[in-house]
Design a protein around this nucleic acid. Structure first.
Lengths: 221, 221
DNA sequence: TGTACATCAGTGAACGCGCGTTCACTGATGTAC
DNA sequence: TGTACATCAGTGAACGCGCGTTCACTGATGTAC
């Protein structure tokens, strides 16, 4: 068994188990026994469990960042200084998000990892992701700013995070929600299908009217 | 130290630590030492760590369910068989959500706990919440159904959860987001202010056009 | 060409540690007669 | 009224267990001379 093989088997198994059960709840023993690899191999190849977790993320984030930058380059060239419409920006992001994990593993796993990373309050993970993701996300928000010139900056900030909440919550809690949807509505959805359903919702949310400037206590209509 | 005191100290400390660090990452030793209570007291009063987690939820959900039922009773009386508008339903839920934790602890903690509960894929917690408090949510979604008669059932389910994601993500990561908003946009918001900003976004999201081919996909209800 | 040594992926067993839980016990208060 | 017993919140120490990590080791392959 060559190095590449062992390392890959560990990463493949780890990402699935992490997504299924969370980081703390997944032991190295579970990973290595399922991957049919020696227990000590994780520490030999990655140094620690923490580094293994970061390595799992890197396999997604590095190609994502690369492709998203490329996609934005392409858009900027195509629109040649013109404002890129919001729908196009969102569509491009969605396409890139769907594209990258499709080459390796499922989007669900990636999103659950992202959701877990966000819900880790102490967050060495969030900091690590910020470093990998930061530049491409800033670039994206700047383009969104130009596409929504009537939105006050603070309002746009909050709405983007409202939508980030939608995406992360839905896709990271996917199994739970899918169980309920199937039980109550006989509705079996793929991740792709869900992302498609989110699109008009996100566009409508970003284009919603501004809240009333006067804070009223209870307005019935 | 009377029973009430010990039990309350455990619950008060546990909910804060769970919200900060997650369930698996918070040990009983950490809880009991911070609460200045004997380690064995948790198992004495609650039976197990799992039951303690459920008890923490019950302290929020029981009063919430009670008040929300009462608020819906009042609405149904007021509208006397007429359809209750979506805005009114959302406003009523928002008011109840804001009201309950204000009596005890912070809304932020409650939302973080909810977010954690949903992201546990294994989900004894989700099942517990569903069993104990499902009825009030069913009642609410039935009223939402009447207020949005043009939305397919499955679509409404997903959109309600998209919005649940917005609320949980935003309010549970409140401190961090608020810091960024203030630093970058000089925008200081209260929780009440944020909920006000969410209202038009949520209404727009629920009223968004259906995705292109949604009816064509396999779901025969 | 043969010999000696270096490198390195991989291994099996053990390490110490923190975990949730258990258990025999205490001491205060309530209750029966 | 006094005595005996019951109840119950709370305690201190220990239990067994699974955890991440370490370490001395193997065995295959590469390299120097």
């Amino acid at each position: 068994m060559g190095q590449t093989d062992t390392v890959t088997r560990i990463l493949d198994t780890a990402e699935v188990l992490f997504a299924e059960r969370g980081f703390a709840e997944t032991s190295l023993r579970h990973i290595t026994s399922k991957a049919k690899v020696n227990l000590a191999a994780v520490n030999y190849h990655f140094g620690s469990k923490k580094s293994l977790i970061q390595a799992v993320f890197a396999r997604y984030l590095t190609p994502f960042t690369e492709r998203f930058h490329a996609a934005l380059d392409e858009l900027e060239t195509r629109y040649a200084g013109e404002v890129i419409p919001l729908e196009v920006l969102l569509e491009t992001m969605a396409r890139t998000v769907l594209e990258v994990p499709a080459e390796r593993n499922s989007l669900k796993v990636f999103m659950r990892l992202l959701g877990l990373a966000y819900s880790q309050a102490q967050g060495h993970l969030r900091r690590y992701i910020q470093e990998e993701y930061g530049s491409v996300f800033s670039r994206f928000t700047e383009l969104v700013r130009r596409a929504t010139p009537d939105l006050p900056d603070a309002e746009r900030f909050w709405r983007l995070h409202f939508m980030l909440g939608t995406v992360i919550f839905t896709l990271s809690g996917l199994d739970a929600l899918r169980d309920i949807a199937e039980k109550d509505y006989s509705d079996r959805v793929s991740v792709r299908e869900l992302v498609r359903r989110m699109r008009p919702v996100v566009v409508a949310a970003m284009s919603a009217p501004l809240p009333d400037t006067v804070v009223a206590t209870a307005e019935a209509s």
